[in-house]
Design a protein around this nucleic acid. Structure first.
Lengths: 208, 208
DNA sequence: GAATAATTTTGAACGTCGGTCATTACTCAA
DNA sequence: TTGAGTAATGACCGACGTTCAAAATTATTC
C-alpha cells in the first residue's frame, strides 16, 4: 500500500540533513566537473529539489564553495597532524610537505577550489577561513621551531609562510598542468627538492 | 560638411585595428573589474560594436583571455631579460625574483589572470602558451647555471621550476589575500627570503 | 554611373546561469 | 478540523557566451 508520503515531491527533511545533501552533491559535482560545473541548478537537479531551496540553506553559491573549501582545509589539517610521529625534525617537515602534495593529488579538481575560487565582487574571505589558515600555518611553525631556535618568532612565521606558499605554487601549477611541457617530473620530487633545499639554506641554529 | 563615413555606426576597420581595440578594452575591463567582469557583451559595449563582432575575430572568450595572458608573459619576459646586468650570480637571481614580484604587484587583477583563469571543459593550453612558459623557464635556468656547475641538467631544470612555482605561489596567494591575516609582511620580503634561502641550500658547486 | 559580388556587422534568439520572492504545499499543535 | 507556522517551489529577472540568417557596407565589374 502506498502512503501519501511515499509520493510527495516536497519531502520535509531535517535542516541538517538537507544541508549535508547539498554539500555532498556539490562536492560530487566539483569532483567530476570542476568548479565551472558547480551550478545551483545542477545541485538542485541532483538532490531533486528546486533551485530556490538551496537559498533557504545557503546565502549564495560562494557560501557553498567556501564550505567545501573549509572542509578541505579541515581534512588537510587532519592529515598534517597525523604525520607528527617522525622524530627527526627535517624529516617531519618533509613528511608534512608530502602529505600536502599527496592530498592535493588525490582529488585535483576539489583541491583546485582552494587556488581557483575567487570571491565575487570585492568581498573578502570570512573570518573562520582565515582562522583555519592560521591553524595550518601554526602547524608548520611548530614543526619549524626546532630548526630555528636562534631566530625571531617573526622569522619562523615568515619561513612557515614561504613553505606554505611554495607548496601551494607547486601543487596549483601542477594541477593546472602549467608546470612543464616536457619534464613530467613527479610532483613530489619538486616538493621534496623545494623543502629540503629551503631547509638546508636556513641559517644554522645558534645555541643560547 | 559631413561625409557619410563620419556618421555611420558600422565603421570598417582594418582587422588588426579591431583586434587591438578588443584586446585593449578587454585589458581595461580586467584591470578594473577582474576576470569576472570580463564579458563579451561588456567589451562590445566599450568599443561600440555588437557582441557578435567579437566572434569574427576571436574564437571564444578563452581566446581573448589567453591572448591577454600571452602578452603578460611577454612583458614579464622582457622585464626579466632587462635585469641581466648584475654581475653577481645570486644577486641576479634575486633581481629576477624581484622583477617578478614587482610586476605582479603593479596590476594584481591582470596578473591574477595567470593563476585564476582555467580553461573551460578539459581543453588544454595551446602550444604557444607552453612555449612561452619554456622561455621563461629557460631564463631562470640560465641564471641558475653558474650556481650549479656540478649538477645535472635535470637538476638545474628542476630547481628552475621550483623557483618559478615558489614565486607563483607567493604572488598568487598574496594577490588573493590569502597569505596572512596578521603579518602583512611585504611581499618582497617573502620572495627574497624564499630565493635567498633556497639558493643557500643548493649543494655547493663542484669544480670539475 | 548602376549592378552585382564579397565581406563585415548586426542583433535577435537559444540555452544557461545566480538569485529573488509571492505563492503553494505541507506539518502539527490546539 | 482548523488555522498558524514552516518548507519548498518555480516563474521571473537580468546577465551571460555563443550562433547565424539577415542587413549593411565595401569592392569589383560593366
Amino acid at each position: 500500500m502506498v502512503r501519501k508520503t511515499d509520493i510527495i515531491k516536497r519531502a520535509k527533511r531535517a535542516p541538517e540533513e538537507l544541508r549535508e545533501l547539498i554539500l555532498q552533491a556539490a562536492k560530487d559535482l566539483v569532483e567530476e566537473r570542476g568548479l565551472e560545473g558547480l551550478s545551483a541548478r545542477e545541485i538542485a537537479r541532483k538532490i531533486e529539489y528546486s533551485p530556490g531551496t538551496l537559498y533557504n540553506v545557503f546565502k549564495d553559491r560562494d557560501e557553498i564553495i567556501l564550505t567545501l573549501e573549509s572542509r578541505l582545509l579541515d581534512e588537510l589539517l587532519g592529515r598534517l597532524k597525523s604525520t607528527q610521529g617522525c622524530p627527526d625534525t627535517r624529516k617531519r617537515i618533509v613528511c608534512l610537505a608530502n602529505a600536502y602534495v599527496e592530498f592535493s593529488s588525490e582529488n585535483p579538481k576539489l583541491w583546485s577550489l582552494l587556488s581557483g575560487h575567487r570571491l565575487s565582487d570585492d568581498k573578502e574571505a570570512p573570518d573562520w577561513y582565515q582562522l583555519k589558515m592560521d591553524k595550518l600555518m601554526q602547524c608548520l611553525e611548530e614543526a619549524l621551531l626546532p630548526l630555528m631556535e636562534g631566530s625571531d618568532k617573526s622569522d619562523v612565521s615568515r619561513s612557515a609562510r614561504v613553505l606554505w606558499a611554495g607548496l601551494h605554487g607547486i601543487t596549483s601549477l601542477a594541477v593546472a598542468g602549467k608546470l612543464s611541457t616536457v619534464s613530467s617530473e613527479p610532483l613530489n620530487h619538486l616538493a621534496d627538492n623545494f623543502v629540503e633545499t629551503y631547509l638546508e639554506g636556513l641559517p644554522p641554529a645558534s645555541q643560547t
